[in-house]
Nucleic acid binder design. Structure first.
Lengths: 343, 343
DNA sequence: GATTAGCACTCTCTCTTGTTGAGTGCTAAC
DNA sequence: GTTAGCACTCAACAAGAGAGAGTGCTAATC
């Protein structure tokens, strides 16, 4: 049995209809909806075939059909493109530039959630590929040193380092010079343990104290802990009956609160998108996250600047308005891409 | 009609029972539960009185009684104390000290939510009363200056300041000295616009450029925007049937996501608790937040160190286990109070 | 006079039973 | 290959019948 043009049309009609109404779609509806001019009986036969092929499912014997994951997949892969273009311009989400990246991202998540009516998340960008611009150590008091690290894109990391005994002015100065001359210009991901050991040897550091400080600085540079994830519109989940029973809703809400699985998702996306820069759609059981198997997850990588990348994600029911979501994501990515360009 | 001892006992029994079961409590249950040795008929008469006095409510004619807000209030004010003590020791929540305050707070929220099975929030501490320890301006590149501000308790704020033309090494040095000598030791809340103007006059600054930098630093000091609020256990809301219908649940979830009303609540609590250092309980319509009128909100002020204070909050159904919540809060406040004491 | 037993009454909840309507699959006719 | 027609299925809704928990009131009891 093959998927001829008529079957495709019918499948498309079923999916479109189901996306709109959320109700199983019957043969009579299709017969009226499409321009195929076929009676419901014929449609019924075709639908039986489509079901056998695994594209649609019957929730119970005497109900209409709903798309299966496989059906959605086909839709997303081959039937969607043509519509996206129409929608593209209609997307109205205007990001205001704010002084802090953080604020812009929060705003972006909020806009995306409001625009799509699904749950949205956005990660703070990672800076692995960014270059170190400037390191500064300063004495806070006898037992504490403050290390400030500025990265390309004016990202600031800082850390308080505990020391047992005060460092002399002279040592501090030397340390500052040592760190700056050797590390500035390197990208974050290149500063690994090896580089640091090498650096220490080269400079001939003997003092345990100084070595400790250098290690702490290196640690602060590599620290990846500041991957923030902003979420918005979690409550939108409750809009969709198929997700709003307590068990499922609870899992999803939990997922949005617990940054752990979210950051896994982020990493996933970043890797998958290394260069493709596309939008990923995970339908139902395709998602990498167990507890999301009743949802669809759409992720994409945004790029604020060269090497400054993060992830946007949307979680909604499988009968998500994929066209709209993809359009909204693209629009948002565009805006995020230009907003900091002038720097 | 007055609230004699017997009525109090009955009311107490009704409330206790309702807190446990969540079901309206009938006269027969009370008659068996209490040691009053009264028949259900007598209890019925008393309950009719209690209802007339507004302490309990009958959801419908042939149901048992449930506590009214007024009933809960009486319970919380006068009947609770004796039980708290028993429970107090049983609270097992062990906070691990982490290098970043942020982590500890996230952990605290998580523990509190897990321990109580309600939704928990905790705000990052405010530092208004803390003293400025140290300011450092450094040149990042020709158009950017980095200002790092360290506050007592080793809180670090930083800000990138845009400048139109580069500042000379000499000016930078002078600025650093100016800021440090004049502002260090002052508490955050004391550094207002007046102080800054005075400072500028005293130093005889004429350059527009330098004045701009000083303003930016002052602004960074006063910026209050970094009031973070961590939440946990939002999904616990769905455990309680009286809150889990879509409308209500959605509002509550939204409340937990939108930091705005949360931070109002935080400020409220901090003010109310200026010195009392107690725990506030808002029952139903008593809460300052409209959308929470079906909930009870319990808030308290924790103190990490002198002047470093923040707010803990719990949101749950009105039939919350107040004893437990108050106990857990106290335990958490104690732990938070000691964890950073050594600094 | 306070307490209690007894009883009629009320109201929710659950279970059962029909009924409706949307939808199907199959067969026979076009 | 397409369609009309028909028997069949199943979820959803509504109506009705009990059961059960609880009440309020009255009259008897301590």
């Amino acid at each position: 049995m093959d998927l001829d043009e008529r079957k495709v049309k019918i499948l498309q009609a079923v999916i479109r209809n189901y996306l709109e109404t959320g109700e199983p779609v019957g043969s009579r509806t299709i017969s009226k909806y499409t321009d195929l001019n076929l009676s419901s009986a014929t449609i019924r036969n075709e639908m039986a075939d489509l079901e056998e092929m695994g594209y649609i499912i019957q929730p119970h014997t005497s109900a209409g059909r709903i798309p299966s994951d496989k059906g959605y997949r086909l839709y997303v892969d081959t039937m969607m493109e043509d519509r996206v273009r129409e929608v593209d311009e209609k997307m109205e989400m205007v990001l205001e530039k704010a002084d802090k990246v953080e604020k812009v991202l929060k705003q972006a998540a909020k806009l995306l959630a409001a625009n799509t009516q699904y749950a949205a998340m956005i990660s703070s960008p990672t800076y692995h590929r960014n270059k170190l611009k400037f390191i500064q150590l300063s004495r806070v008091d006898d037992e504490h040193i403050l290390a400030v690290i500025v990265v390309e894109g004016n990202i600031i990391k800082n850390r308080i380092i505990d020391v047992d005994e005060p460092l002399s002015e002279d040592t501090m100065l030397k340390l500052n010079i040592l760190l700056n001359t050797n590390l500035c210009g390197m990208s974050m991901q290149d500063i690994n343990l090896g580089v640091i050991t090498l650096l220490k040897e080269k400079a001939g550091i003997h003092s345990q104290l100084v070595a400790g400080v250098v290690d702490a600085v290196a640690d602060a540079i590599r620290a990846d802990e500041d991957l923030e994830i902003y979420t918005s519109g979690t409550n939108n989940i409750l809009r969709y009956p198929e997700l709003s029973d307590k068990q499922k809703a609870s899992e999803i809400i939990n997922f949005f609160e617990d940054k752990k699985p979210l950051s896994d998702l982020v990493r996933n996306t970043l890797e998958a998108n290394e260069e493709s820069n596309g939008i990923q759609i995970y339908i139902g059981s395709e998602t990498p996250i167990q507890s999301m198997s009743d949802c669809s997850v759409v992720t994409a990588t945004y790029r604020l600047d060269e090497g400054v990348e993060g992830t946007i994600g949307i979680v909604g029911p499988k009968r998500m308005d994929y066209d709209h979501v993809v359009g909204a994501m693209k629009s948002l990515m565009d805006q995020l891409g230009t907003i900091y360009k002038r720097e």
